[in-house]
C-alpha cells in the first residue's frame, strides 16, 4: 500500500514537472496539427464561404496539380543540392578552423558570419551578387565572357543559384557543431595514432569521421529539415519564379494559404510536408542510429 503511494507520488511529481512544456506542446504543436489535418478534408477557399467536408478531394486535386509536383521535385533537388555539400563543407571548415594556429578566431568568425546575418539580409546581398551585367558575380563571369548570365531570371540557373547561396549561408552554422564535436575527441587518440604512423587520411577516415558521426547525423537532420523550412529568400529574390522554377513546398503552402486563400488545400499540403519530414527523421533516427557510436 505504502509502496503504491510512493510510486504514485514519484509519477505525479514527474507529470507535474512535464506539465508546463506539455501544455505548450499541446497548445502550439499538436492542436494545430490536428486542426490542420481535419481542415485538409474540407473545402475552405474563397469560393465557399462556409467550409464543408469534401473527403480526399484536396489530396486528389493535389496529385493532379502540376505546380505541386514541380515544387516537390524542386524541394528534393534543393535538399540533394544543399544537404551533403553544406555538411561536407562544414566538416572541412571545422577541421581547418580547428587546426589553424594563427588567426583561429578570425577564421572561425569569418566562417560563422553568414549564419548570423538574417536570411532576408542574405537574400538582399545575393540579389545584388546575382544581378546580371553589374552584379559581383557577373564581374567574375565577365572574365569567361559570360557577364550577362541571368542567374535568377533563367529557369536553368535559378535553382543552382539558390543552392549555392544556402550552402554559403548554412555551412558556417553546421561548422560550429563540428567544432564542438572535434573538441570532444580526446587529443590522446590522435597522439596514439601518430605513434602508429597513421596518415592524416587514415586518421580522418578511421578516427575523426566515425567519432563525429553523431554530429553528422544531427547536422544532416537539421540541414534536411532546413531545406524544407528555408523559404525567406524566395520572398525577396524570386517569389518562386521564373514560372515556379525556384518554388519550394513551404512557399507554395504560404502562397496557397495567404495569397490564394485556399485553406483546405494549404492544410493538405502542410500534412504532406509534415509526413515527409517525419518519415525522414524517423529513417535517420531509427535506421542510421544503430551504426553510430555514441560515447
Amino acid at each position: 500500500m505504502g509502496e503504491l503511494r510512493a510510486k504514485w507520488k514519484v509519477n505525479m511529481y514527474a507529470w507535474l514537472l512535464l506539465l508546463p512544456s506539455l501544455i505548450f506542446l499541446l497548445l502550439f504543436t499538436f492542436y494545430p496539427v490536428i486542426q490542420t489535418f481535419i481542415l485538409s478534408f474540407h473545402q475552405a477557399d474563397l469560393g465557399s464561404p462556409e467550409p464543408f467536408f469534401n473527403g480526399i478531394d484536396n489530396y486528389k486535386q493535389m496529385v493532379e496539380d502540376e505546380v505541386f509536383w514541380k515544387v516537390l521535385t524542386n524541394n528534393i533537388w534543393f535538399a540533394i543540392g544543399t544537404v551533403p555539400t553544406s555538411v561536407a563543407l562544414a566538416l572541412g571548415m571545422a577541421l581547418f578552423a580547428n587546426k589553424a594556429l594563427r588567426g583561429k578566431s578570425f577564421i572561425r568568425t569569418a566562417y560563422f558570419y553568414p549564419t548570423v546575418v538574417p536570411m532576408i539580409a542574405v537574400a538582399n546581398i545575393w540579389l545584388f551578387i546575382y544581378t546580371p551585367e553589374y552584379g559581383a558575380l557577373s564581374h567574375v563571369m565577365e572574365w569567361f565572357g559570360k557577364g550577362d548570365m541571368n542567374w535568377l531570371g533563367d529557369q536553368k540557373n535559378v535553382m543552382w543559384a539558390m543552392i549555392f547561396m544556402v550552402i554559403w549561408k548554412e555551412a558556417g552554422y553546421f561548422m560550429i557543431f563540428y567544432l564542438a564535436g572535434l573538441q570532444n575527441i580526446s587529443q590522446e587518440l590522435y597522439e596514439s595514432a601518430s605513434m602508429e604512423g597513421a596518415s592524416s587520411w587514415t586518421v580522418f577516415r578511421r578516427i575523426t569521421f566515425p567519432l563525429l558521426m553523431p554530429t553528422t547525423m544531427f547536422v544532416s537532420i537539421i540541414a534536411f529539415t532546413n531545406s524544407f523550412k528555408l523559404v525567406d529568400h524566395l520572398v525577396i529574390m524570386t517569389k518562386g519564379g521564373p514560372d515556379n522554377a525556384s518554388n519550394l513546398l513551404l512557399y507554395y503552402i504560404y502562397e496557397t494559404a495567404f495569397s490564394f486563400w485556399d485553406q483546405g488545400m494549404a492544410s493538405a499540403l502542410t500534412i504532406v510536408m509534415v509526413v515527409l519530414l517525419l518519415l525522414v527523421a524517423a529513417f535517420q533516427f531509427f535506421g542510421m542510429d544503430k551504426k553510430i557510436h555514441y560515447n
Partner: peptide, 20 residues
C-alpha cells in the same frame, strides 16, 4: 624523426582506446 619512426610504443594515461 616522427613518432612512428622511433620504434616506440606508448601507453597513455587515459588509455587512448578508440571508443568506436
Amino acid at each position: 624523426v616522427p613518432p612512428s619512426g622511433r620504434n616506440i610504443s606508448m601507453v597513455f594515461q587515459n588509455y587512448a582506446l578508440y571508443p568506436h
